[in-house]
Design a binder for these strands. Structure first.
Lengths: 219, 219
DNA sequence: TTGACCATCGGGGGTCACCCTGAACCGACC
DNA sequence: GGTCGGTTCAGGGTGACCCCCGATGGTCAA
């Protein structure tokens, strides 16, 4: 890896900044192309097929998706290319969005030339590269699925077993007749249960029930 | 951060390895406790409330969840504590599992004492710490959603602007009359738009529309 | 100018959702 | 034994939903 330079395309809407990046990167890196908006970035990446794209997060053009749009569009077209986001923003939303789009790292523009070169090399080798503090945002966004199992529901406990059964089907969009067929009871009985559910949960329609159940991940 | 030592609990099922970790960590780190299985780890963490837990991934005891189980159990109990996974395994599944459980980093046991000390300090400061190559596993597991974005646009673009507006309100549970009042149009016009939306999306009721919109996160 | 699409309305009608009262059976509890 | 709650079902009613058939006017492109 010391024998071959890392081929890089720099995407940023400011000419001066691109010149600065080009001047700051050391001999391990070869800037093979530049682009200044979403469209020209995609074209340049497809043409040069670089190892790494240094990608500004906020870009003109395209459908307003900025750097994340570029990464998404090129993910299938150029599988060997990795993306390193480079932005003034250190907002968690920006970081998570572009990482979700497929970028392998995110550094702020306060970085030094040497550190940026290191980050580019690391990303080229398949590793991740983050400015301090930013990696935590990604991990925070990552660990937000299996943590809510312990939540008990006293509202749900007020429903009888049969009422819960009917409630789940109704919340999933089943019609009364379909619920009746599913549970081998009459439509009128379903109506009775639904009325009881709505009354006990203090809801007024099956639509509210759907949202209520969705919020509690009961679907 | 040079004035205060980072307080650490070391969790590993091998006494010899714990001794090695203790001997390898430098003066910035203070090992305040040790544990050798899931149960004793949770107890030690609750007792000492360390800044960082060095956590072996494969542990005896508990419900077989290993280090991930420890991290999950302690997430709510000791919010100030961060977890750094430490394992011989460099398998992607192990890495993703323990990160998903809340760990802020993952290093292999091939690490040097100096690098491990650095990683502990970085995690204590809220940053992430990964051995080379391992961070990529997490990012790979993270970017597994953008496939439905393109499909969403195709389907959604077939709706006119007004139809999308009506669709969002209907999907949120608004009644026709409420939508009419919100958009200053007649109930009949709302009906027309809803019919067009259902026909274009090949749905048969507003309930299916709600699920359709929820799947695409349009709410 | 014509055609296509969109947004805005209306009548009519069939189905569905929701509520009301009322009732029967069963098991648990006092 | 009486009371209470759960489950089952019925008739009747009102409004919401969803479709069919129309109609008018606007914009935009061929």
């Amino acid at each position: 890896m010391t024998t071959e330079q890392v081929r890089v395309v720099v995407v940023d809407d400011h000419l001066m900044f691109r010149a600065g990046v080009r001047a700051s990167l050391d001999g391990r890196i070869d800037v093979v192309g530049e682009a200044e908006d979403v469209g020209s970035a995609i074209a340049a990446i497809r043409e040069h097929r670089p190892d790494v794209v240094l990608l500004d997060v906020h870009l003109p053009g395209g459908r307003g998706g900025g750097g994340a749009e570029v990464a998404r569009e090129c993910a299938d077209l150029t599988p060997g290319t990795r993306f390193l986001a480079l932005s003034v923003s250190d907002a968690a939303d920006d970081v998570v969005a572009v990482i979700r789009a497929g970028a392998r790292g995110y550094v702020t523009k306060a970085i030094t030339g040497a550190d940026l070169s290191d980050a580019v090399v690391r990303v080229a080798q398949g590793d991740a590269a983050f400015s301090p503090r930013l990696a935590g945002f990604v991990l925070d966004a990552f660990g937000t699925a299996p943590a809510d199992v312990a939540e008990r529901d006293d509202e749900l406990d007020r429903l009888s077993a049969r009422e819960q059964e009917v409630m789940r089907l109704i919340a999933r969009g089943y019609a009364y007749r379909e619920v009746a067929g599913e549970l081998f009871i009459s439509v009128k009985t379903v109506e009775t249960h639904v009325s009881a559910v709505l009354r006990k949960l203090q809801l007024s329609s099956r639509h509210e029930l759907t949202r209520w159940a969705a919020q509690r991940k009961l679907l």
